[in-house]
């Protein structure tokens, strides 16, 4: 415990995704993106079952990142909030640089472009994919160190379903642009926060604020697909 807690949590998270990337993902590697995502659904269900058993919701837990608050122009800001924003920016810049400048990053882009061709060119596809899983796990782990500070009571359901607004941002960014994803996620978050204080006749705005990511991503899809008539199944990610 103590000093090793945070890196331990992050590593734990990364090991789970690495295990998936190493053992299970290769079994589905020739399927379309949809079947692959169903594989993730399977893992999600599996983990949710374990958490449901291990996580007694009657005993609320929390994990507060050491934080300090200060006031800027009548608004209370916490260092964790600033850290979260800075972390997001660092991740966007860092991941972009990694993908553009390093050979492993280039190999990842190559695999995303065409897995089979990349393998033909000698890219060790499985190893690179496992690295991507590991990296994603590290990022997720870091996020879930910061996120609990903004959630009143932690339970596995709440935490698991943070994936929905996250998906909203990713859909707007079309799984291609980290910058668009970043800004879309910020916009979704800001709209949700603005809707929160509504009450009285406009109470419904506050009640339904969680629908924001869905509305935004549906609008984004309408916008993205406004001219497209045919989408080849499973090819959108290529």
């Amino acid at each position: 415990m103590g000093i090793l807690l945070y890196p331990g949590l992050v590593l734990n998270c990364a090991l789970i995704t690495l295990a998936y990337g190493w053992f299970l993902a290769p079994k589905l590697d020739r399927r379309d993106p949809l079947a692959k995502s169903l594989g993730m659904v399977a893992v999600a269900l599996f983990l949710m079952g374990i958490m449901k058993d291990r996580w007694d919701t009657s005993k609320p837990r929390n994990l507060h990142f050491p934080s300090r608050t200060f006031t800027v122009a009548d608004t209370v800001v916490s260092t964790t909030q600033i850290l979260a924003l800075a972390f997001a920016l660092v991740v966007v810049v860092g991941v972009n640089l990694f993908l553009q400048r390093t050979s492993i990053g280039t190999a990842m882009r190559a695999i995303a472009n065409n897995r089979e061709t990349s393998a033909l060119l000698g890219v060790p596809v499985r190893r690179i994919e496992a690295m991507a899983w590991f990296g994603a796990g590290i990022l997720c782990g870091c996020v879930f160190l910061l996120l609990p500070s903004f959630v009143k009571s932690l339970d596995q359901g709440t935490l698991t379903w943070f994936v929905i607004p996250a998906l909203g941002g990713a859909i707007v960014g079309r799984f291609r642009s980290l910058w668009i994803t970043f800004f879309a996620s910020i916009v979704i978050g800001v709209i949700e926060s603005f809707l929160t204080p509504f009450s009285g006749a406009l109470q419904f705005l506050s009640d339904f604020r969680r629908v924001t990511p869905v509305v935004i991503s549906v609008l984004a899809i309408l916008w993205i697909s406004r001219r497209r008539t045919v989408v080849l199944a499973g090819r959108e990610m290529s």
Binding site: L34, G168, R210, V218, I221, E236
Partner: peptide, 19 residues
């Protein structure tokens, strides 16, 4: 939802279930 297919359709429908 019908403007998209494959993975996007799955994700959008999941989000709609969430909504």
């Amino acid at each position: 939802a019908l403007r998209v297919s494959g993975l996007y359709l799955a994700l959008v429908t999941l989000m709609l279930a969430a909504a």
